[in-house]
Amino acid sequence: MKKKLLLALLLVLALVLGLSASAFAEARLDFVTDEAGLLSEEERTQLNERAGQISEQYQCGVYVVIVNDCRSYVNGNIETFAEEVFDSYDLGYGDARDGVMLAMSMSERDYDIYAHGSFGNYAFTDYGKDQLAESFLDNFRRNDWAGGFRDYVENSGDLIRRAKEGNPLDQWIPDPEPEPEPSLSSGKVALSALISALFGGVTVGSMKKQMKTAVKQTRAGNYVARGGVDLRVRDDRFVNRTVTRQVIRRDPPSSRPSGGHYGGTSISGSHGGSHHSGKF
């Protein structure tokens, strides 16, 4: 029933461009909506319940919306679709409407992970969304839809939990080395001259060597009789064994190393959300 409602409302959305989000304010959307029929009703229900639990526990919505063709609903791509659905259904928790949505369009095999709200964007960093996508894409490539969505829901829960603990999954990006000012000191010139002289000396030495070819032979490999090698003794005797142990020193992980920054989340568009999209 709710699937039908979504379809109807989105069709209206597609036909009436510029329609205010308030027109959908009263509508509700499940945590998992499968217009494309990838999941059995049982699978969808289970996922819906689990996504709901996580969303309620952390007050940050976790959503899945699957349609056959997102262009039937919006004049744009999968990212536009995700933004419109998130806004139209007033998804998310709290004033900032924190949440994350996995939107999928089957005809183009496009997907988008859309994070919204200040906490949503804090929890789902660019790196976090990238890792989240990797966790379910391998299932999708094997047409294991239920498994992929389960991974998405559970891993989204993990990302939200980490963020609640003040430790969102993010990537440390060291600062680029400052570009040195081009300069040519006398030391550099001397070094160049030294290397060049060395190279020149080796080259000329090699050329000189080519001028001397009369060399006395110290071997007679050309004159070994056919079948004339007879190895009589082949003795390999173990004598002793030594064992050394060396402790491997590992530098303790620094909570916040200097000289760099975390990747964070790249907010795009006017909806205050961030995307990670691609093909599955």
Partner: peptide
Amino acid sequence: TQGDTLVTTTDYYDVRRAGTVQFEKIP
């Protein structure tokens, strides 16, 4: 590697080879 320890084992052998090589017409 055993935990945080790198264990290096070195076995030593006495190796001996003996044989004969026949030569023909070394100039």
